[in-house]
């Protein structure tokens, strides 16, 4: 990895006797989208707040865009756009005034604000209501406005905390596209979410938190390899009551999961398509064997099934 835009080394946060974040290490490159996952209270938000310089670490250190959030929080905040979960705005003010206020705090000149405001609002699809009071906005529009605020800053890093929670499916789809465009601009994105399918669809890598520790990190395929075993996942379509036993009997098969009808999801340690075809074709009616992307939902569920101590 080239010089990371975010680096955390043994980052630790303790509240009294409670260890909220426990020696977390990770790197994030420029233009990378990394999903932060984990149950409530697993340390995701505390880690984000430490990276933003909004709370002091008890131990370890972090570097964001070349600055230490503890020593240079202002420099870090100049380069990081933050969209908190359930974002709030000043209801009595227009969208423009809300964004102009934070933009002025960010040190933007009046001319820069004028230039960037329309572009940011157009990009999030709020160009037509920019001068309306925020009190008239739906929750989805507020989330978009929050993203517009991030865009106005033109940050090196965007931290998005549960950005799609209040959005309908269509808006979610659009929002995920906007996140992809941030990546295209070269912005590193840290996306905290409980919507695993969304994280999988947009993130390059995933960091899984559990009880303050960074339990797993890597691509979904890498995580699937470690959690599901092997990381090679196929969907087998075959007719016959003995199909699950036959598949499970193939050496290298880790798990067989019925998907309904004659379809089965098979986790393997290596590419076993030929072996599966040989074993099944002899005794049952085999229709096909297809590649299946490992699902982050499965990885997550299996990890906490085995960890056994998740707090949902």
């Amino acid at each position: 990895m080239a010089d990371p835009i975010i680096r955390a080394e043994a980052l630790t946060k303790r509240y009294g006797s409670n260890l909220a974040v426990d020696h977390v290490d990770f790197d994030i490159a420029a233009g990378e989208i990394v999903g932060i996952l984990g149950p409530n209270g697993s340390g995701k938000t505390t880690t984000i707040l430490m990276l933003l310089g909004l709370t002091e670490p008890t131990g370890g250190r972090a570097m964001v865009a070349g600055f230490d959030p503890l020593r240079d929080p202002l420099e870090v905040k100049r380069r990081v756009g933050y969209l908190p979960d359930q974002i709030g705005f000043y209801e009595n003010m227009s969208a423009r005034d809300n964004l102009a206020y934070t933009a002025r705090l960010a040190g933007l000149s009046r001319r820069e604000i004028d230039e960037r405001f329309n572009a940011a609002l157009e990009r999030v699809g709020l160009g037509h209501v920019g001068h309306a009071r925020v009190t008239t906005y739906s929750q989805g529009m507020r989330q978009r406005l929050g993203l517009a605020e991030v865009l106005m800053k033109r940050p090196s890093v965007a931290v998005l905390d549960e950005p799609t929670t209040a959005l309908d499916p269509h808006s979610t789809h659009e929002f995920l596209d906007m996140i992809r465009r941030l990546k295209a601009d070269g912005t590193a994105v840290l996306l905290s979410s409980h919507h695993l399918d969304q994280v999988q669809s947009v993130c390059d890598r995933v960091a899984l938190f559990n009880r303050g520790k960074l339990a797993l990190t890597g691509t979904v395929t890498e995580l699937a390899g470690r959690v599901l075993g092997g990381g090679h996942v196929f969907d087998v379509e075959a007719h016959g009551s003995e199909v699950p036993e036959l598949i499970a009997g193939v050496p290298g098969v880790v798990r067989v999961q019925p998907l309904g009808g004659d379809r089965y999801r098979v986790d393997c340690r290596r590419d076993l398509r030929a072996d599966l075809a040989r074993h099944l074709a002899r005794s049952v009616d085999l229709t096909g064997i297809f590649f299946a992307a490992p699902s982050l939902n499965e990885v997550y569920a299996r990890y906490f099934e085995e960890a056994g101590d998740a707090v949902y």
Partner: peptide, 14 residues
């Protein structure tokens, strides 16, 4: 209560 504090403090101010 308005949930504006983290938004404001995420800007470069103390």
């Amino acid at each position: 209560n308005r949930r504006t504090l983290s938004r404001v403090l995420a800007q470069p101010i103390y």
